[in-house]
Lab assay of single mutants.
Amino acid sequence: YHCKTPDCKGWCFFEDDVNEFTCPVCFHVNCLLCKAIHEQMNC
Rank of each mutant, 00 (worst) to 15 (best):
Y1S: 05
Y1N: 05
Y1M: 13
Y1K: 06
Y1I: 14
Y1W: 04
Y1T: 07
Y1G: 06
Y1E: 06
H2P: 14
H2F: 13
H2T: 09
H2D: 06
H2I: 07
H2W: 07
H2C: 10
H2E: 03
H2S: 11
C3F: 00
C3K: 01
C3T: 00
C3Q: 00
C3N: 02
C3H: 00
C3W: 01
K4I: 08
K4M: 15
K4E: 05
K4R: 13
K4C: 08
K4L: 15
K4Q: 11
K4V: 14
K4N: 10
K4A: 13
T5A: 10
T5E: 08
T5Y: 09
T5I: 03
T5W: 12
T5C: 11
T5Q: 13
T5L: 13
T5H: 09
P6R: 09
P6N: 08
P6E: 08
P6M: 07
P6S: 07
P6Q: 11
P6T: 08
P6H: 04
P6Y: 04
P6I: 05
D7V: 03
D7A: 10
D7Y: 11
D7C: 02
D7G: 14
D7T: 05
D7H: 08
C8L: 01
C8G: 02
C8P: 02
C8H: 01
C8F: 03
C8K: 00
C8Q: 02
C8E: 01
C8R: 00
C8D: 01
K9S: 14
K9E: 14
K9W: 10
K9V: 13
K9D: 12
K9P: 14
K9C: 09
K9N: 08
K9F: 05
K9Q: 12
K9T: 14
K9H: 07
G10C: 03
G10L: 00
G10K: 03
G10T: 04
G10A: 03
G10H: 05
G10D: 01
G10F: 05
G10Q: 04
W11C: 11
W11D: 09
W11K: 13
W11Y: 12
W11H: 14
W11R: 13
W11S: 15
W11A: 12
W11T: 15
W11P: 03
W11L: 14
C12S: 15
C12N: 02
C12E: 01
C12V: 14
C12Q: 07
C12Y: 14
F13S: 14
F13A: 15
F13R: 15
F13C: 10
F14W: 14
F14G: 15
F14Q: 06
F14E: 11
E15N: 06
E15I: 08
E15G: 08
E15D: 08
E15C: 06
E15T: 12
E15W: 05
E15Q: 10
E15M: 08
D16F: 14
D16G: 11
D16L: 09
D16A: 13
D16W: 05
D16N: 09
D16S: 10
D16Y: 08
D16M: 07
D16R: 14
D17C: 08
D17G: 15
D17S: 12
D17M: 07
D17Q: 15
D17P: 12
D17H: 12
D17Y: 13
D17I: 07
D17R: 11
D17L: 07
V18S: 11
V18D: 08
V18K: 13
V18M: 10
V18I: 15
N19T: 14
N19C: 10
N19A: 12
N19K: 15
N19R: 13
N19S: 13
N19H: 07
N19W: 09
N19P: 06
N19E: 14
N19L: 11
E20P: 01
E20D: 05
E20K: 08
E20T: 10
E20N: 06
E20C: 06
E20I: 04
E20G: 04
E20A: 06
E20H: 06
F21Q: 08
F21T: 13
F21W: 14
F21R: 05
F21K: 06
F21P: 02
F21I: 12
F21C: 08
F21L: 04
T22S: 07
T22R: 10
T22C: 09
T22M: 06
C23I: 00
C23P: 00
C23V: 00
C23W: 02
C23M: 00
C23A: 01
C23R: 01
C23S: 00
C23D: 03
C23Y: 02
P24F: 00
P24A: 03
P24T: 06
P24G: 05
P24M: 00
P24S: 07
P24H: 02
P24E: 06
P24D: 05
V25M: 06
V25D: 09
V25A: 10
V25G: 04
V25W: 05
C26Y: 01
C26K: 01
C26D: 03
C26N: 02
C26S: 01
C26W: 00
C26V: 00
F27P: 03
F27N: 14
F27L: 12
F27C: 11
F27H: 15
F27T: 11
F27R: 13
F27A: 11
F27W: 09
F27Y: 09
F27D: 12
F27S: 10
F27K: 15
F27M: 09
F27I: 03
H28T: 12
H28M: 11
H28S: 12
H28V: 06
H28A: 14
H28N: 08
H28I: 07
H28K: 15
V29M: 05
V29L: 08
V29S: 07
V29Q: 06
V29K: 10
V29W: 06
V29G: 03
N30H: 04
N30G: 01
N30M: 00
N30E: 00
N30I: 01
N30L: 00
N30D: 01
C31F: 02
C31K: 02
C31W: 02
C31M: 02
C31A: 01
C31P: 01
C31V: 02
C31L: 00
C31T: 04
C31Y: 09
C31H: 04
L32Y: 06
L32P: 04
L32F: 05
L32W: 04
L32D: 03
L32V: 09
L32K: 13
L32T: 12
L33H: 11
L33I: 09
L33T: 12
L33F: 06
L33S: 11
L33P: 14
L33G: 10
L33N: 10
L33C: 08
C34M: 00
C34Q: 04
C34Y: 01
C34N: 03
C34K: 03
C34D: 09
C34W: 00
C34S: 04
C34V: 00
C34H: 04
K35Q: 12
K35G: 14
K35S: 12
K35L: 06
K35C: 11
K35W: 05
K35N: 13
K35M: 12
K35A: 09
K35H: 12
K35P: 05
A36S: 13
A36V: 06
A36E: 14
A36T: 13
A36K: 11
A36D: 12
A36N: 10
I37K: 08
I37E: 08
I37V: 13
I37T: 14
I37N: 07
I37S: 08
I37A: 09
I37P: 10
I37W: 05
I37F: 05
I37H: 08
I37M: 08
H38L: 00
H38K: 02
H38W: 00
H38T: 02
H38E: 04
H38F: 03
H38C: 01
H38I: 01
H38R: 02
E39D: 13
E39L: 10
E39G: 13
E39S: 11
E39H: 09
E39F: 08
E39K: 12
E39V: 09
Q40R: 12
Q40S: 13
Q40G: 15
Q40D: 14
Q40P: 13
Q40H: 12
Q40Y: 06
Q40N: 13
Q40I: 03
Q40C: 10
Q40K: 14
M41K: 15
M41P: 14
M41N: 15
M41Q: 15
M41T: 15
M41A: 15
M41S: 15
M41V: 12
M41Y: 09
M41D: 15
N42H: 15
N42M: 10
N42E: 14
N42G: 15
N42Q: 15
N42R: 12
N42P: 15
N42D: 13
C43W: 03
C43I: 04
C43A: 05
C43Q: 05
C43R: 06
C43Y: 04
C43H: 07
C43K: 05
